[in-house]
């Protein structure tokens, strides 16, 4: 089981949304991490045959996925970032429809829908109209539709967007349960979503895969050290300006900072173990401090 990307490029006019990406994915959970605009969604759309690459190739077990056409899509499950639905359909109708376009026979579709709705805690909402579901419930229905055909490749684009913390935790657990013998590619800009469940992290920036490895490998390879230091209120602003700070915790006398620096930044700073969030901050810097900084 191998999904291989070779020198994959997608250009929109002069802009390269995905720029020469090469990698091979085998069984496991992959976290595709990057800020908005890094090219994650474009890459995923190509993997789902929704966009044709400008150059390069994607192959499944050695065969081009666009040539495989329906044969490839039969083993694919996709939850798009912008998950659309038919507002007048009930959950049952929606899953019935998606099952039909996935080529499932009605009896098998009913059995599989029931199974997934039970697993996702949606069984009692199966008759409810899609438009009446909460954001979290809709996402769960989105997962269910992606899983209907028991896909070998499961592509989840920003699956936790709009979910509250509790739902995000439930979702992470669910993905771990569903992972099984398949390739799960999960894109997000929220580090904690993938830190615990991904076997491999792909760090994407400006259309390229910047770094790839297991979470512990990435943290080990971080070129900077992580420091915890205590600062007074007067120094706080200067520290925030001068250092890369991944966390600020207010204390009675000032603040406790988590700082990324090659050397001890302040007297009394003690070294800490790096996390994936620190890796993210190191590579994405200020960009990660913007609206995407939901670490």
């Amino acid at each position: 089981m191998e999904l291989k990307l070779e020198n994959l490029t997608k250009r929109f006019r002069e802009t390269a949304a995905v720029d020469g990406v090469s990698c091979a994915l085998t069984e496991g959970v992959y976290g595709l991490l990057g800020v908005n605009g890094a090219g994650k969604t474009t890459l995923m759309r190509m993997l789902c045959t929704l966009l044709r690459p400008t150059s390069g190739a994607i192959s499944w077990n050695g065969r081009d996925i666009f040539a495989l056409d329906a044969e490839y899509r039969a083993i694919l499950g996709y939850l798009p970032q912008d998950f659309g639905f038919y507002p007048e359909f009930s959950v049952d109708d929606y899953l019935g429809y998606v099952a039909s376009i996935k080529g499932l026979r009605p009896a098998a579709a009913r059995a599989r829908s029931g199974e997934l709705l039970r697993a996702l805690g949606l069984e009692k909402y199966r008759g409810r109209k899609m438009r009446k579901l909460s954001g979290g419930m809709r996402r769960r229905v989105g997962i269910a539709q992606a899983m209907l055909n028991d896909p070998r490749i499961l592509v989840l684009d920003e699956p936790t967007a709009g979910l509250d913390p509790g739902e995000r935790i439930r979702f992470r657990n669910l993905i771990s349960e569903l992972a099984g013998e398949r390739i799960v590619l999960l894109s997000t800009h929220i580090v904690s979503d993938v830190a615990c469940i991904a076997n491999q992290i792909l760090l994407m920036k400006d259309g390229r895969i910047l770094l790839r490895g297991a979470p512990e490998e990435l943290t080990r390879a971080l070129p900077e050290k992580v420091w915890r230091c205590q600062v007074g209120r007067a120094e706080l602003e200067r520290c925030l300006r001068e250092y890369r700070v991944s966390n600020v915790r207010t204390t009675p006398g000032g603040a406790e900072l988590r700082v990324l620096a090659p050397e001890q930044p302040l007297p009394g700073a003690v070294p800490e173990e790096a996390t994936l969030e620190d890796v993210f901050l190191h590579y994405f810097g200020e960009k990660g401090d913007g609206e995407d900084a939901a670490l």
């Binding site: 789902c48 929704l50 329906a70 996709y78 659309g84 038919y86 376009i101 080529g103």
Partner: peptide, 21 residues
């Protein structure tokens, strides 16, 4: 409607999304 309701991605990434559907 598929595009306006943003349901196109699921449709076209499904096995029969570009044929029988």
């Amino acid at each position: 409607g598929e595009f306006q309701q943003r349901a196109d991605a699921v449709l076209f990434s499904s096995k029969l999304g570009r044929s029988r559907a």
